[in-house]
Write a protein that binds this DNA or RNA. Structure first.
Lengths: 347, 347
DNA sequence: CAGCTCAGGGAAAACGGTTTCCCTGAGGCG
DNA sequence: CGCCTCAGGGAAACCGTTTTCCCTGAGCTG
């Protein structure tokens, strides 16, 4: 590859001068004529600077890393990762930043690999990390030299943590309030993974909404689970078993599923048990996995994952350039998408 | 970050010696005792070599680039990219290689960016490139220094081209032969994008199978299209219009759709036109998008995209290490997946 | 004991940039 | 005319590795 010295020779200047011109640094003290000569020489030779030499010399690498800890086939199967990456990439492409993907099985593996992420390849890290507590954050913060990072899809509380996420508390509250506004008073909660940050927050929103409306909180109709359809199926079964015979009348008239996947599972199970939706029971989800949700008429709270990815990209860029400071938070406002799975309570 | 000099100081040897020990190079001429001292010092300091300094010094970067030219949201919407990336990543993770993603709008944009890919960041490139002809391949081959690359999902002919793909000719032949074996003699072809390499090859398989069976080739029932469901819908409409009234009897008894997506569209349209599938018309696809195909009972030719990704990863690694030579081809054997959308021709 | 061999490890160049500091010469001013 | 200033650009150190080449000293041989 053509080196800067060849350009220098071609333009009859020193390598240092070439560098200054091409980086527009100290261009005040390089004559217009020389600048033109250098640029033309670079063009003629077909010169492109080596990103690694540049990195070694202390410059930015113009590259960021994206760390994900999911299963192996998660890009295929997970509904979050694809849109999120699409969002990140759309920004970085236009900023001419390189994006390096680190896909780990779990966060402990990621923890082990921090030195690998921080070996100079990247200027910063976007962590797609849904877990509430994981030491990776602390390790990253104590890293020298400090590697800037943002948390995507995670809005945990913490000093100086840069988070980009859906406003999950509001989302939980919005879903619950919607059901309340339809007259529902007993609203089941089908939770997602207990160790996910979003789960805590959506639950908080649920309780807040109940409290604001003066409705009692009943732990009997809060069902732990995971963010998968199977969990929705399973919890309908549990609920059905719980409210049978004499207890029949205590059955909730609405279910707040903490994700669309859970809701899809719930819808499927309700059909199996011949519980008519929405007349007997209303169902709301969170996410808006549009194609399927539309098809099944699921009322849901929309989050735009792609947009979260984009905002995260921008935040990390700002962080790496020192334009924003750690601790910046950007929480996306949720949005209610009305379809046919929620109706007013039948008296 | 701790540098090699600090390790050297700690172990009371020279930096060169540290390098030799840690890379196990010329370890014949370093005493066991010294080796142990160096390793221990490195451990104590928490030393991790800078990948970029290493790269500058002429070593491999242990990083490869993946270039894709699709739409912006392709990771979300395209059924090929996700599994393919999952496959690539699964291999590179265990080889401790970094993966840098380049997502371009189209191949011309990619062409512009070749110097960017080749700026030293990556040791090689995996091109997920379905187009038959594109100058990017030539440009890459004339690049100095040469950047090794493999073509994924593309098995065009060409001197010294390393290709990993489904054996599309066989797949086309297999689909067609399956229909022929069921007694079908007029088999429509719903093609994918005309400029995709796979389209040409699947079509060749179709014609080969017809010829081998002594069946006439009728261009009237070959329908150009694109690899989307809409195209299947559209072509059923065209076929329906074409074979109406007197021509009714000339209507094909089977459709070979060049992808599952096309087939899904076709199934939908057939239902709309009240053409009963499979009794009136059989349908076969290619891909095996398992969940949906299973749900709709689509008979199809399976390709394991994830496995293609994995093999591509391995090939590129071999190429970058000089263990295999350009020109290596690895074509996956297709596999017939029988479901309910194809039945024997009703006499 | 002189000379040779070889194990063990150090010195320094090289990779390709960036950046700091300094030098040179021209123009302006007293 | 002499001195000062400043624009313009060059020299060289530096970033953190790898790698080649060479040096040293110990052990062996004749």
């Amino acid at each position: 590859m053509a080196s800067i010295r060849e350009v220098a020779a071609e333009a009859k200047v020193s390598p240092g001068t070439v560098s200054k011109v091409l980086n527009e640094r100290g261009n005040a003290s390089i004559s217009r004529a020389t600048q033109a000569r250098v640029r033309e020489a670079a063009e003629r030779i077909g010169y492109h600077p080596s990103s690694i030499a540049r990195g070694l010399a202390g410059m930015r690498m113009n590259a960021i890393g994206v760390v994900m800890a999911y299963d192996e086939e998660s890009l295929t199967s997970d509904p979050y990762l694809g849109p999120c990456l699409d969002g990140l990439l759309s920004i970085y492409k236009q900023e001419r930043q390189k994006v390096t993907l680190f896909l780990e099985q779990n966060w402990d593996a990621a923890l082990q690999n921090i030195p690998f992420y921080g070996d100079g390849h990247c200027d910063g890290l976007a962590l797609i990390i849904p877990r509430t507590t994981h030491p990776i954050v602390d390790t990253l913060r104590s890293q020298r030299p400090h590697l800037p990072f943002v948390l995507v899809g995670d809005s945990r509380e913490g000093e100086g943590l840069t988070c980009i996420d859906l406003d999950n508390v509001s989302a939980g509250r919005m879903a619950t309030e919607h059901l309340i506004s339809l007259g529902h008073r007993r609203i089941a909660a089908f939770q997602g993974n207990a160790d996910f940050c979003s789960n805590d927050q959506r639950f908080k929103g649920y309780r807040d909404a109940l409290a604001s409306a003066g409705l009692p909180y009943d732990p009997e109709i809060v069902y732990p689970g995971v963010y998968f359809a199977e969990s929705g199926v399973e919890n309908v079964r549990r609920m059905q078993k719980q409210f049978t015979g004499d207890n029949r009348s205590g059955r909730p008239s609405a279910i707040f599923c903490f994700s669309d996947s859970i809701a899809f599972g719930a819808l499927e199970a309700l059909r199996k048990y011949d519980i008519h939706m929405p007349t007997e029971i209303s169902v709301i989800g969170i996410d808006d996995l549009t194609t399927t949700a539309q098809q099944r008429g699921l009322t849901t709270i929309r989050q735009s994952v792609r947009s979260i990815g984009q905002r995260a990209a921008i935040a990390l860029l700002g962080l790496a350039r020192g334009e924003i400071t750690p601790g910046f938070r950007d929480l996306q406002l949720p949005e209610l998408v009305l379809r046919s799975s929620t109706v007013a309570l039948q008296q």
